[in-house]
């Protein structure tokens, strides 16, 4: 791994953040820290030895070829592998100063603090647009109508969906277009006011215009949440992310972290030749 101590240091820069492309971390401590994280299925390692920090209020992208374990790594961050019996997560994942697999934080509480948007839009088909957006709040026991209304409006505005759906909140979520459905899912995740938002190729099933809106959204959302995004789209990673982790399959086809650092550095001056090859599209 080609990471310097400096890059792991959370308090290395004092420059205030002004736009999405500033490539350095903040004064604030990292939102999440991964230490030697490995995930295996039935004893077969899918991704191994990932160590990096996720900076607060930044976008961190995970890139790498198909099968390099990006999704697997992402799903270990909100303990979604708990559902898979054969899956085993090793290493340490810290949310602030809580070890998320340490037993002090129940998975349900963890997941209400770390939202997720999936590759394919998956609105709840029996629920209206409004019910979809507030479903996370209801699941977490919030019943007060005023609070739900407020949260729904704010989340839909943040997801750039309010203008087009405010007049038909009672309509089914499945009546929306694919791009709108994905923004509905983003609104649903945002309504719970998560500290961190995990996005697994959120635009891969969308057209260029919807993709652009969601990319703009990510940059706007930074002051509200920390975003970790998996993407196959190099330009997308370059456009939206501040930090970037590059994963690649090793000899035994298990994914490993090749390089982590500010996106500008990864894309312009990578330390590892394999990163350069991948960025320039020489393999993958």
């Amino acid at each position: 791994m080609s990471m310097t101590q400096d890059e792991l240091n959370p308090t290395r820069d004092t420059e205030p953040i002004t736009n999405g492309q500033s490539a350095v971390s903040t004064l604030t401590p990292p939102a999440m820290r991964l230490e030697n994280v490995s995930v295996s299925f039935n004893g077969r390692t899918a991704v191994r030895d990932c160590t990096f920090n996720v900076a607060s209020n930044r976008v961190t992208s995970l890139i790498g070829p198909s099968g390099s374990g990006k999704t697997t790594l992402l799903r270990s961050l909100n303990r979604l592998h708990d559902l898979t019996r054969s899956a085993k997560v090793e290493g340490k994942i810290m949310l602030g100063d809580i070890d998320i697999y340490g037993g002090s934080l129940p998975p349900t509480l963890l997941r209400s603090r770390i939202g997720m948007v999936f590759q394919r839009p998956n609105p709840f088909p029996t629920m209206s647009i409004y019910d979809n957006v507030v479903s996370g709040l209801r699941f977490n026991g919030i019943k007060k109508k005023a609070l739900l209304d407020e949260a729904a409006e704010s989340a839909l505005i943040s997801a750039a969906l309010w203008d087009s759906v405010s007049s038909r909140l009672k309509a089914h979520g499945s009546t929306l277009s694919g791009g709108e459905q994905q923004r509905l899912c983003i609104a649903r995740a945002l309504a719970v006011e998560p500290e961190i938002l995990l996005m697994d190729e959120p635009t891969s099933s969308l057209d260029p215009i919807s993709t652009q809106r969601i990319e703009e959204l990510m940059v706007e959302l930074k002051n509200r949440v920390t975003i970790i995004i998996v993407t196959h789209n190099m330009q997308q990673a370059a456009r939206v992310s501040d930090d970037c982790a590059f994963l690649l399959m090793g000899e035994d086809r298990a994914g490993e972290l090749i390089e982590f650092g500010p996106t500008t550095k990864i894309f312009n001056d990578p330390s590892d030749p394999r990163t350069l090859d991948y960025i320039q599209g020489r393999f993958g």
Binding site: R111, F124, G136, F139, A189
Partner: peptide
């Protein structure tokens, strides 16, 4: 299966996802 995952990812308990989704 993605619907169950969507529910759980919102912080819902398994039983709530079963009943609500």
């Amino acid at each position: 299966h993605t619907l169950r995952e969507a529910g759980l990812a919102l912080g819902a308990r398994n039983s709530k996802v079963s009943r609500g989704v």
